[in-house]
Amino acid sequence: MYLLNRAQRHTVNSTWMIISLLLVALLPFLLFIGLYLKSVLLLHDYSLFDLIFSKTWRPSAGKFGFYPFIIGSIWVTVVAMLITAPVCLLTAIYVTQYTKKYFLRIMHPAIDILAGIPSVVYGLWGILVIVPFISRYLGPWMGVKTMGYSILAAAFVLSIMIIPFVLNILIEIFRAIPTELKEATLSLGATQWQTIKHVLVRKALPGIIAAFGFGLARAFGETMAVLMVVGNVVRLPKSVFDPGYTLPALIANNYGEMLSIPKYDSALMFAALLLLAVSLFFNLVMHFFIVKYNKY
């Protein structure tokens, strides 16, 4: 029935498993080394400080300043987190502490649908709904002239995209808190909100920070949706109504044409390397917060 006997099959299967495991375990290092080797060309000619803090981006003249892109990315991410963080925290507390069980059963599919929508669809939705809304209503109302393609549009779309991600972690965290803690506080005469404010949130703080950190890392690397609504103008944004440019959008927009200009290719790989470093850093730090949280 089988081509090989049992011992041989065992050997084949084990080898296959170990090879796969090695491949997977080496993946982050391979990514890092691969991107580093590609960007060495650029790092050889310019110092790291110059690349990150110089403001002119003119590849044809050999000027590669990533400052506008980094600042653009930070603006978009921070504004998105400002929307996501309170909404997620409040919702997580509400669905775990106030509502009955059936409400969570309604919320979970809703969160899953939001999580399952591809980023391109979010971007499309941003173009169809958010951008016209900002240019026609919100901009004039605030007394600003804007085309709608702006930091704010990108941040809003981005915040919707990371809500399911952050919310899922937060709900898990709040559900993992032992009920005795809550009961003890309530029996001492605290109100429900006092219990939440002084006991639950404080207990869950490392977990909350970790959830926001994971969300932040995810938001920083998001490409397509942001690319479609952020406006893609290489300039330092002055307000949230200005168009901007983010690091991932820079990579995605310039892939086709970069081969004609020397070092352009290397510059884009350097941008990818920056993204990788930021993402690894955030995930690393947040992992330790989670570990700390689990130790309690």
């Binding site: 920083f220 690397g221 991932p248 884009l268 790989m269 993402s279 690894l280």
Partner: peptide
């Protein structure tokens, strides 16, 4: 956690 654009570049 690595963004997909990094995979694309790689």
């Amino acid at each position: 956690g690595i963004p997909s654009i990094v995979y694309g570049a790689f």
